[in-house]
Computed example of a mutant assay.
Amino acid sequence: MADDSVSQPISPQELLATMHELTRRVRVAQRGTWFPLLVFATITLLAIPVYRYAPYLDVFGRCRSGPDYTVCPAPNPTELGYWAVALLLAYTVIAAFYIRQSLRRGVGTPIRPYVVVGVVLAVLMTAVSIWLTFHPLLSPPDPFSTDPDIGPAGWLMSGLASPLAVIGLALLVLAWIERHWALLAYTLVFLAVGTVQGNHVIRSSSPWFFLPYLLVPAGMLLLGAAAFAAFRPGTEARA
């Protein structure tokens, strides 16, 4: 008489389905999406006093003045230095968070590509910003026009050579690492908003003219962090 307690062999289809489910659970356990967004929101908000109170240092000699305006196409070295340091510190903190999370959950996260890409992008942002100072997208006196026409390629370059673009492009890498489709969709919207903002001509005499260009992305990052933290799958929230 056959022993009915003997388990039936697992079919290849069942084994494959089990592997897919385990892979999905591991990816969920690896995720910590909310934390990078929170860190980037923090450094964006901390940039407000730097933009407001840091003096403009025309170390590149690019400022031009008119009867009732002064235009400086070169970035403020103080602001550029802030973003370079803040981004590098941010990626260090994020890497430490993921390492700690991996030790606590017992599931490693391949965070190194994300951190490396983020650091490289931060360095490239600084280099491109300085390069554009001496190689403007328009020749004088057009750079000081109130409505410069730099074309689609220049428009894209100008928008992507910004701190917020560095954040967004690195988030694309994080979305790939975590296989996170929601983060991918969020990041594409964030990049689109940042690119449009980066090419908007500012016409204001207020010393707080920059405020919307920091508060809007900071608000998006805070909302994204809250959403990804609130809607984490149960396995991630309990880990």
Rank of each mutant, 00 (worst) to 15 (best):
R232W: 03
L191W: 07
G194H: 03
M157H: 07
Y69R: 07
S129Q: 15
T195S: 05
D68A: 13
A227N: 08
Y213C: 04
V166P: 08
L183H: 08
T33V: 15
R62T: 10
P55M: 03
P12F: 02
T146P: 04
V85Q: 03
T126H: 09
L137W: 01
R100Y: 06
S205K: 10
G234E: 14
S205A: 15
F97Q: 02
Y69H: 07
A84D: 05
V26N: 04
L137A: 04
T42C: 11
D142K: 14
V196K: 08
L174E: 12
L137C: 03
L16R: 13
S65H: 01
R179N: 10
L45C: 13
E236W: 08
V120H: 08
Y186E: 03
H180T: 03
M1N: 11
L211S: 09
T92S: 10
G106F: 09
A122V: 11
L171H: 14
S145V: 04
E79H: 10
V173H: 09
L45T: 09
W208D: 12
Y186C: 06
G198E: 07
R232D: 11
S158G: 15
V196G: 09
P140C: 07
Y213M: 07
A227Y: 15
F210R: 11
W131P: 07
A230W: 13
T42K: 01
P73A: 05
E14D: 15
P12L: 03
V166M: 06
L80W: 00
T23N: 12
P9R: 05
A29N: 04
L214N: 11
P141H: 07
A182E: 08
G224Y: 12
L16C: 01
L137P: 04
L121D: 04
P113Q: 08
N76W: 01
G108N: 10
S162E: 13
L103P: 00
L191P: 04
R62P: 00
Y213A: 10
S5H: 09
T78W: 11
A17K: 12
L46T: 02
S145F: 03
R238E: 15
F35A: 06
G168M: 11
G234S: 12
T70G: 00
T23R: 12
V115M: 02
L37W: 01
R104D: 07
W155Q: 10
Y213H: 13
P110M: 05
S11G: 08
A95M: 05
I10P: 00
E14A: 15
T23M: 12
W155V: 08
L22C: 02
P163K: 09
G118A: 11
Y51H: 14
T187W: 12
A86L: 06
T70Y: 00
A17L: 12
T44K: 05
G224W: 11
R25V: 07
L160F: 15
A90M: 06
R100A: 14
A226E: 02
T18N: 15
L214E: 13
L124V: 15
Q8L: 15
